[in-house]
Design a protein around this nucleic acid. Sequence first.
DNA 1: CTGAAAAATGACTGGCGGGTCATTTTGTCC
DNA 2: GGACAAAATGACCCGCCAGTCATTTTTCAG
Lengths: 217, 217
Amino acid sequence: MQETTPEPQQAQPEAGLRYRKKEAKRAAIIAAAQAEFIAHGFAEARLARVAAQAGVAKGTLYLYFDSKEALFDAVLRGALPLIFAPPAAPDPGTPPQVAFRRRLRAAIADMQASGRDKLALIVLSESAQFPGLARIYLEAILEPLFGLVRDYARSSGVARLEPLTRYPQLLLAPMLAATMWNRLMTERPPLDLPELLETHLTLVLGPPEGEPAGVTG
Amino acid sequence: MQETTPEPQQAQPEAGLRYRKKEAKRAAIIAAAQAEFIAHGFAEARLARVAAQAGVAKGTLYLYFDSKEALFDAVLRGALPLIFAPPAAPDPGTPPQVAFRRRLRAAIADMQASGRDKLALIVLSESAQFPGLARIYLEAILEPLFGLVRDYARSSGVARLEPLTRYPQLLLAPMLAATMWNRLMTERPPLDLPELLETHLTLVLGPPEGEPAGVTG
DNA sequence: CTGAAAAATGACTGGCGGGTCATTTTGTCC
DNA sequence: GGACAAAATGACCCGCCAGTCATTTTTCAG
């Protein structure tokens, strides 16, 4: 193996074993950190545990991240892009109410399944220390969801729903509250988020597949 | 003042200057601690600041409370009894919808005015460390509120509201979410909690004073 | 006023954990 | 294999802060 790929210059650095190992290690650290932050929150998270879990030494963490905060930031940013996986198919034949509900259900189920809903709580509770993160979270997650709700409320033409264009929070708040509830009340049977969402949507928007009010226009 | 109240035995200890000073100091400490916890959360709260604010030395805190946790506990317990100030008059002539809304409005306004809504957030965010506090909070604050909602939903006889008997959380979640929002999004104009409550109640229960659906029975 | 006990003080400590860096290990190229 | 550098290691450092305790101050009975 003398002159196989003799490119000692910059070239593409994505090839070497070095590079792949680094990437893998970075991923392992972020995964371990995510688990640690979810389990203990920011203040109680221990970098020693993160290192152990990731299978590296504590010092190694600092080759990849400047500080505990930077690591937290990386965990959060790593989670963000996944939160809005595009809904499998736009499916042009689906009526808007159905599509809307499906979209919400998918977003909630997805967040819950991946444990990223817990991250949201951490951002919320530690936001005093990281005002920047709150903004990121708002812009990357909440605003799009609010947009979804607003668009639906507006386009549905149902007068009752007009307040949702002003306060889209109202439709999403129970999901947040229920997530908190489940984190807090570990002794009680946890709330079933999908069912709660369904109940809430029915309460506010009307029954699922029926036509609560004629769609105008 | 020789033989005014010469009772050196145990007697009732509520009289002496000593006792009154102690009580005042205890109250001052709890007040200072409440402000500190609200401003910084549990982890970032500094007992040195609490002591300074209360006008005592740090060591003095430990004459009154065993630990930081015990102090937090005391703050929380001190706030609890106030949260449900009895509504000025039961007013037997008032229709239930009006009384119910009034009661909710009062509870929310009261919590917000006193800053105790922030305490709720702290309990939520630090609950991983203090599972006991979550229980206290649930039992002392949430359960009574849930009871209120359940009773109303049940007694109103409106079929649409049946889900509220199962998930009374749905009606209260927006208040929690809005409180978080206001804490997080300090750059944006804060949500008006009373207005948000009104909007949500209208959305779910129907317009304020009207009769959204015939009360059966 | 006096003495004794209760209350308050604040300099001090212990340990904890985030962050560092001299040393060792590993990957790469010839 | 040898030489070089990149990567990894983990013992160590250091600031911080909850909690302590020997000393001082205050209360109050006699």
